[in-house]
């Protein structure tokens, strides 16, 4: 590869641009969240606050009447409640999806049973169904089962939407894994299910961790489905609550930004910690 000084400079500029593009909006969110509405509204707007304050976070977490915050009304406790809802839904859905999908991936990859080809085709086939065509029918199914506005209901829905992809990724892993450890366990007198629990699942652990991270990230970011299936704080996730802070005429940017910053911390941390696993899985799966 020939490299000229000009190309090296171009490359450095490109790298800086990539970092600024990726982090810039997040940094802007943080600086906005520690500003006052007055500084945001001043002309020209202060992009870096002269008097940083945590008032927006206090208004968000403890509640505000809207008189001091330019129309944005927040109720104390709601935001934390929505964050815990999001966490419960994401973790619950991830745990259940992994159980369901690991079992299915093992059965489809290793056990020869009748119609296994048809079951695999059915599960993979659902991957091509866009979620939006099922939401209307789903709304009625959930209403009939009295699962509207419950965390249980949302978890079940996300298990259904996430399982096909999770099963496919884990199935690919099962097919690539060496058979010998399981065979040795079977020869030692293990039953099939014992071999699965004691030998195969530990063998799959790295794939399971990556899939878990992908499910948590994607469920944490879900918006359309919870927008339709929740109505009160008893199940509302943080993505839905945030959109309610967007004012119709004026928006209190510091409060909105504070909510955005707090809601992005869990997925950002997860993505940074597991980034090698996630990038590997994403690049490999597509």
């Amino acid at each position: 590869m020939i490299t000229t000084p000009g190309m090296r400079v171009a490359k450095i500029v490109a790298i800086v641009l990539i970092v600024v593009w990726s982090v810039g909006p997040i940094v802007l969110g943080v600086t906005t969240s520690i500003s006052t509405q007055r500084e945001v509204n001043s002309i020209p707007s202060h992009w870096v606050p002269r008097n940083p304050t945590l008032q927006a976070y206090r208004d968000l977490l403890n509640g505000s009447t809207g008189q001091t915050t330019g129309g944005t009304v927040t109720r104390g406790g709601d935001f934390v409640h929505a964050m815990t809802n999001s966490a419960e839904i994401a973790l619950g859905a991830a745990a259940l999806t992994l159980i369901v999908s690991t079992m299915a991936a093992y059965a489809l990859g290793r056990l020869r049973f009748r119609l296994s080809g048809a079951v695999l085709a059915l599960l993979i086939g659902t991957l091509v169904i866009p979620i939006f065509v099922i939401v209307i029918g789903l709304f009625q199914v959930m209403a009939n089962a009295q699962l509207i506005d419950t965390k249980r209901g949302l978890i079940l829905v996300f298990v259904a939407t996430q399982s096909p992809l999770a099963t496919w990724l884990l199935y690919a892993q099962v097919r690539e894994m060496p058979h010998e450890p399981e065979e040795a366990a079977l020869i030692d007198g293990c039953r099939r299910w014992q071999a699965f629990v004691r030998v195969v699942v530990p063998q799959m652990s790295s794939g399971i961790a990556a899939v878990a991270a992908i499910i948590v990230l994607s469920v944490w970011g879900e918006f359309l489905i919870p927008l339709l299936l929740t109505s009160t704080m008893s199940a509302k996730p943080v993505t839905v609550l945030i959109t309610e802070y967007v004012g119709k005429y004026t928006t209190n940017y510091p409060i909105l930004a504070a909510a955005g910053v707090l809601a992005l911390i869990p997925p950002a941390v997860l993505a940074l910690v597991l980034n090698k696993r996630i990038t590997g899985m994403l690049a490999g799966s597509s």
């Binding site: 059965a107 049973f113 059915l122 079940l156 259904a160 399982s163």
Partner: peptide, 26 residues
Amino acid sequence: QILGWLFVVPAVAVVGALILYPLVTG
């Protein structure tokens, strides 16, 4: 045979009830 079916039943059930069935009613 038995374990294979037992292991795929949860996935098939949840996908059937919450994706394929709403697809048809929709």
